[in-house]
Design a binder for these strands. Structure first.
Lengths: 190, 190
DNA sequence: TCAGACATGTAATAAGTTACATGATTAG
DNA sequence: CTAATCATGTAACTTATTACATGTCTGA
């Protein structure tokens, strides 16, 4: 998280609030963060001298605290990036739900797919809006944007194409299982 | 994690070791776990009466501990799945590296892309091997497999197609920036 | 007047990662 | 003989999530 905040700040100074907004506009398909992660990270970075903070009266109730990368921060960021491993991990409760779809009511499985699709579409809209903004994006940002669009588009397409047959298979299986249970002499269920 | 272990066990009894293997064969593109998560989770599930454990001499130095879902476990799993939100979060250091690629040496950016590609190809191989196994997969497993294949294939394709132009753009930018710096009267860098 | 954007932060909790510790058997 | 596979677990550490706490201004 600290590295991510440094990264966002490398594009220009920002408040904690700003950082979250930028994040969401530009990068949320690869990384999510709440204020509960951002503010503590910023405090640590300030304590380590990697950013400076300046206060300014804002429109809200409190003064905004504007964070700026220092030279040390810029160096630390470059070092961290030079040493980082390109890990990529997904943690998908949605996928778990689908993986175990046989244990779900088909209507719920359908609802989950629809919610995931809505979520993906929202992401895609944000990413295409970003491209329509006029000012060309830095190469890295544009590359990452394209990567997100590619993965999300393919996922949405798969979900759209396979939703119906999948749900039909689940329903058929349910029916089968019920019919099967009916002539089994089980002692514990139903 | 507890839910995931219950989910894997819903396909049949297994040891902690087995759970990790199955995971990796079938689901690793959506969820990764180490033994440090699995064994404690299993211990908690046993304490809660959701699984039972039986010991058996194995081929290794220690007895294997085979975990089996209880009826209570099956019910708990169904309840959790019925209540779960379909969250999906990605945490990609790789994407961060690309996002900030301007701060990286182009050779390193190239290496990172290649590593990510190798990783994706390994995942895809595992997933296609799974389909070639003969026995038809449960609908949910097959759906999740397909979802992974779709997303990973699209990502690989994007990386392959955009690698060259992206790296070229980065190099050009570097050259520009250097040329620019040469006739700037900076006092702090180099 | 009411929702939503602006704006910051803390505390408690939950979760996951890494490193450590052990050691037999088997295939090359 | 050596590497890999089988096999389990703990402890320390790091990290993120959630809920809480506060409060103003603006537009509908």
């Amino acid at each position: 998280m600290r590295t991510v905040c440094l990264g966002i700040l490398s594009f220009g100074e920002a408040t904690g609030y700003d950082i979250k907004q930028r994040f969401e506009r530009v990068y949320s398909h690869f990384f999510a963060a709440g204020y509960g992660s951002i503010y503590p990270a910023l405090a640590e970075l300030a304590a380590a001298g990697l950013v400076t903070r300046r206060e300014e009266a804002g429109t809200g109730a409190r003064p905004r605290k504007i964070y700026t990368l220092t030279d040390a921060g810029r160096r630390a960021l470059a070092e961290r990036l030079a040493a980082a491993e390109p890990h990529h991990r997904v943690h998908s409760d949605f996928a778990l739900l689908m993986f175990l779809a046989e244990l779900l009511e088909p209507a719920r499985a359908a609802a989950m797919i629809d919610r995931r699709l809505a979520d993906i579409r929202a992401h895609l809209e944000r990413l295409t809006a970003l491209a329509r903004e006029g000012a060309p994006l830095p190469a890295g940002v544009e590359f990452t944007r394209g990567l997100g669009v590619a993965a999300l588009t393919a996922t949405a397409r798969y979900l759209e194409d396979n939703r119906q047959p999948f749900l039909a298979a689940l329903k058929a299986q349910r029916a089968n299982r019920k019919a099967h249970f009916q002539h089994l002499p089980t002692g514990d269920s139903e």
